[in-house]
Amino acid sequence: MRALVTAVYLFLYAPIALVVLFSFNAGRSAVQFTGFSADWYGKALSNVLLMDALKNSLLIAATSAILAVVFGTMAAMGLERLGARMRALFDGLLAAAIVVPGVVIGIATLVALVQLFDVLNPLLAGLWPGQEAPKLQLGYGSIIAAHGLFTMALVTMIVKARIASLGRDIVEASSDLYASPLTTFREIVLPQILPAVLAGFLLAFTFSFDDFIIAFFVAGSKTTLPIYIFASIRRGVTPEINAVATMVLGASLLMILIARFLMREKTTR
């Protein structure tokens, strides 16, 4: 039994450990370790295409995470006011949104967007006062929308749990003490749910930053970091890719740890 568990963990983590190890390889090979060196990190950071993809990824992750946090928090607060049956329905839909495979979300979003563009673009062309109407197409917007929608479900789940533990009476007390609903949100609710909101932001950011499948379908001509890595693997795995992967891994782990810390701190109090 013990051996089995060890085997499972080895199977899970050994490849990752190897990636990290080979990112420090001095030679070009991804199978033969020929000496320790951090050169590939320098090479990766000076690769223009790679840095471009990284910038795209950061922009998309930040924007979609902000959208997800704003709308997810609003959704969580709205769901609190629903009756029991409607709430159960929406809880189920939220869980479903998280469980649906990325491929399905990717294809569904692609099909939906393409059809929407087919309807909107002629309309836009007809209404546009100038010569050349802008054409809606896949790109930053579509990735942000797809990621934002998916991670919104994540944020809603996290924030909803925190709001549920908040209790209605401090909201009522604030209202009793002449605070408008907006003031109540700013002064009482937000400070209480902030750790959950931040945790949701970090998880949403990490998800968007790491996502390949959904982005692959809806990216159009844009390249995100995971798409770039996927594309360059076809030319063979170099320690440069390992170095990039290690950096992404480190950043993601850090964010998830922070998110877990934020969620834990409030639930034990």
Partner: peptide, 10 residues
């Protein structure tokens, strides 16, 4: 103004 049963302090 109301004094709540479980005080409802912030």
């Amino acid at each position: 103004n109301m004094v709540f049963q479980h005080y409802a302090l912030f």
